[in-house]
């Protein structure tokens, strides 16, 4: 299809072409423009829960991952007002769980952390909840550290929609929402989880970790050491 035949909307003044059925964030990513996001993943049906991708569409705020692109929409994203709000949402995620980056194997490769760098989050701002969350080390090859869960449900979706399993699910409500696994014991080892599952490789933070490979990449060479997340709107696994 001829590129200039595609309809467009504007994102921070820049025309973004889109095809029918694309959401704003999908069209933006295809055009190489970064909109902060955590629960969105190009391979999965939009979820709309983290709200990091909130943009202004014709002046009204909405999640760009669930809003379908339409011709001539005026979309604002990279503006102070929205970035301030996104930073506050990140701060909420940081105080809600226990995110101790220095001891986390995912550090440097973590979307939550990289997004917080991108939005210049210098402090957690709010008072910490310091919740008591478990670590599940029962599986021989994988570790689950629930302290870092941001409830994006990507693992739930990956297990269900790609792996045809139901290894992960959300339980609880409100601030007590939490990730559970599909076993009477509550332990990963008693599920049908496998290291070849999509769900094993989808976690944007440091909850689902492969054992014995931690800290393999030296500091300085990790994914987000090289370039900020905004410079890599499509990650290697995304394309």
């Amino acid at each position: 299809m001829n590129q200039d035949k595609l309809e467009t909307f504007t994102l921070d003044g820049q025309p973004i072409p889109f095809s029918a059925g694309q959401t704003i964030i999908q069209a933006a990513m295809a055009a190489g423009v970064y909109i902060p996001h955590l629960c969105f993943h190009p391979e999965f049906k939009p979820h709309g829960s983290c709200k990091l991708c909130t943009v202004k569409v014709n002046g009204r705020q909405t999640a760009s991952c669930t809003y379908f692109a339409q011709a001539n929409l005026v979309v604002e994203s990279n503006i102070t007002e929205l970035n301030d709000e996104r930073r506050a949402l990140l701060q909420m995620l940081f105080v809600e769980g226990n995110h101790f980056c220095p001891s986390c194997e995912k550090s440097g490769d973590c979307q939550l952390q990289a997004t917080a760098y991108e939005l210049k989050m210098m402090s957690p701002h709010f008072d910490h909840f310091f919740p008591d969350r478990p670590v599940d080390a029962t599986h021989p090859d994988y570790l689950l550290d629930f302290n870092r869960c941001i409830l994006c449900s990507l693992c739930v979706r990956a297990s269900r929609d790609v792996d045809g399993k139901a290894v992960f699910a959300l339980s609880g409500r409100g601030i007590n929402s939490h990730l559970i696994v599909n076993a009477e014991s509550g332990n990963l080892v008693d599920t049908d989880f496998s290291s070849t599952d999509k769900a094993a490789h989808i976690c944007p933070v440091g909850v689902i970790l492969k054992k014995r490979v931690g800290f393999a990449v030296p500091i300085g060479q990790r994914r987000f050491d090289a370039q900020p997340i905004s410079a890599q709107p499509l990650s290697k696994e995304d394309v």
């Binding site: 829960s49 983290c50 709200k51 995620l93 008072d127 409830l151 409500r173 409100g174 601030i175 929402s177």
Partner: peptide, 20 residues
């Protein structure tokens, strides 16, 4: 805070922060 479903970040965390 008690009734927030916990789906979205602002309501899940924000209602509890507000209550605090």
């Amino acid at each position: 805070a008690h009734e927030s479903c916990g789906f979205c970040t602002p309501c899940r965390v924000g209602t509890s922060l507000l209550a605090n």
